[in-house]
Design a protein around this nucleic acid. Sequence first.
DNA 1: CTGTTAGCGCGTTCAA
DNA 2: TTGAACGCGCTAACAG
Lengths: 362, 362
Amino acid sequence: MKAATIRDVAERAEVSVASVSRVLNGAGPVTEATRNRVLEAAKALQYVPHSGARSLSTSKTQTIGVILPDLYGEFFSELIRGMDVAARALGYHLIVSSSHDDAEEASAAIRSMRGRVDGLIVLSPHLDAANLAAGLAGRLPILLMNGGADAGRPSIVVDNHGGAVQAVEHLAATGRRRIAHIAGPAGNLEAETRLAGYLEAMARAGLPTTVVDGEFTQSSGYAAGAELARREPRPDAVFAANDIMAVGAMLALQDAGLRVPEDVALIGFDDVPIAALVRPGLTTLRIKIAETGRGALERLVRLINAAGEAVADTACEVVRPELVVRPSSQAATSDPSVSSQSTSGDRQSVTAETPSLKGENS
Amino acid sequence: MKAATIRDVAERAEVSVASVSRVLNGAGPVTEATRNRVLEAAKALQYVPHSGARSLSTSKTQTIGVILPDLYGEFFSELIRGMDVAARALGYHLIVSSSHDDAEEASAAIRSMRGRVDGLIVLSPHLDAANLAAGLAGRLPILLMNGGADAGRPSIVVDNHGGAVQAVEHLAATGRRRIAHIAGPAGNLEAETRLAGYLEAMARAGLPTTVVDGEFTQSSGYAAGAELARREPRPDAVFAANDIMAVGAMLALQDAGLRVPEDVALIGFDDVPIAALVRPGLTTLRIKIAETGRGALERLVRLINAAGEAVADTACEVVRPELVVRPSSQAATSDPSVSSQSTSGDRQSVTAETPSLKGENS
DNA sequence: CTGTTAGCGCGTTCAA
DNA sequence: TTGAACGCGCTAACAG
């Protein structure tokens, strides 16, 4: 009981495969009579076009691949969700590939995409321009989002430096002096740029720096927060390189008996959903993650449709993080008994998330 | 500058395409000499096999499709992450398709997968057996995870009823009497089964029931929590049909000036990562999400490899949720001034998550 | 308006 | 051991 092919339909309808193809694709002139016969036969046979075969002959897969370092955490989920929204709207499928430990493996992954996708969105930091070029023969449209402003190639990069500066300036503006930084993993471009921004802003403000290493994970954030709580003198503010580390640090500080933000102010980076759900709500630098993902996919599709033509789009789009102030960084109130568990500002950001990409979840 | 094909390699190596194929696939007898010439030519031309074409001739795509209702929230992210781990290990790609508003659209999505995947994992509740059968001609291995114990088809289903009963019994055991339930969306099988379990367990315990509707979202959980806080008499415990609603409810209760768990105990369902990060830590019914995803993918691959043979695997695998007690449901302490922000039990569950699927995130 | 045919790029018989 | 030829399922020219 094998699946019916276009030929089966043609035979049953007593027409040629070409006619079947025309009818099913709505292209080309067809008599109403034959059209009906084809449709009928197709239904009778439960015919479903074989997209693989179609891809081969049209050289279009209607699929785009997403290469990412891993699938952990809300950042990537949100990003993929945004891409999925755009993909569906544009009639594309999404194929994800993650967790490539080294450049070699990542390169292999990208190579295995040939003939399977019409374009690629690359987030793996392992893949620099060199490996990229080596990985793919033939011009496969690629959009880079791996943190490096790979000039000469279409790319999207977050203004990590600017975001970090904003973070420091915000904390300094609310009277904090001993501002510590929980850094992301060494070798990670995003992490290093945020660190650089922190150092520069601190220097400019004439403040002493304190850096603790983290791994962009909640547990490393917890460990870092615990260590900072023991430091003497203790920091009065902490800027974590991403939200999930900030959340970890928040728990550590609270477990150490410190109050946030009265004793230590806290700020993260990314504005993942959880940032608005912890208490106190976490101040952070918002990247409209899902929206960025959607924009990225749309741009890649544009790139695909323009393939061969003027390679005009070679720009590096910059996403500028926006400071979102929540209770975790509020200046200490005069009345310490007042819990800062919730404020209207926080409530607002809890319920008013990017409406354009809203949906249900389970 | 088009990509090189197997024919280009053959010409350059001055052999036939068959030989090139043999060398590259390591199958068939080949002379060491020709082998080298082929390898050399392939490298010189930066040849990368066209997986689409290969799929067509081998009838194997090495790709698995995942049909899910949407991409919101940590539940699906975790599930996909688990699947991705298994897929990579088994040499498969993952193609995700989500947000199909109605059965028709979902059916179309699944149909568009033909010739693109070797098998399907279906989570869309829209797709019942009927639509499923209508959607696919030819036998495409399918693993159902849409909540319905679709007997006769390979499937995995969570014991939602049993989990709900556990939840109620746990709350009742810690002295709670007025246990309310925040239900999931009507029409959702998982939600309805959890509700049924709640009702049955409450009836058995001789307790009065209170049900508030929710939508499996944080905001609906918040709204439900706010309403319950106003109820007279006020519930002394709340069982939310999933974690994210429980988190929303927790915030609402706290915003209403109530203490969790002293005034109101709280329990969720799923054990998504955030459950361990809110304060107080959320008691919940753990589904090892990523692990379940991994298991699902592995089973589907097994199904694929056994296609045509004995359709022995037609069983409905049941995943039994495990009660994870965190502070949100602890019995009120004698000393209300003691904050239950953190306990060693909570700490433990924060840091000791399924190690087999651990990784880094950003 | 319709049918025939040639690829798309690759795996795989079957002879040689 | 190698190579020529066919087929996977479909689209797109080109005849008719």
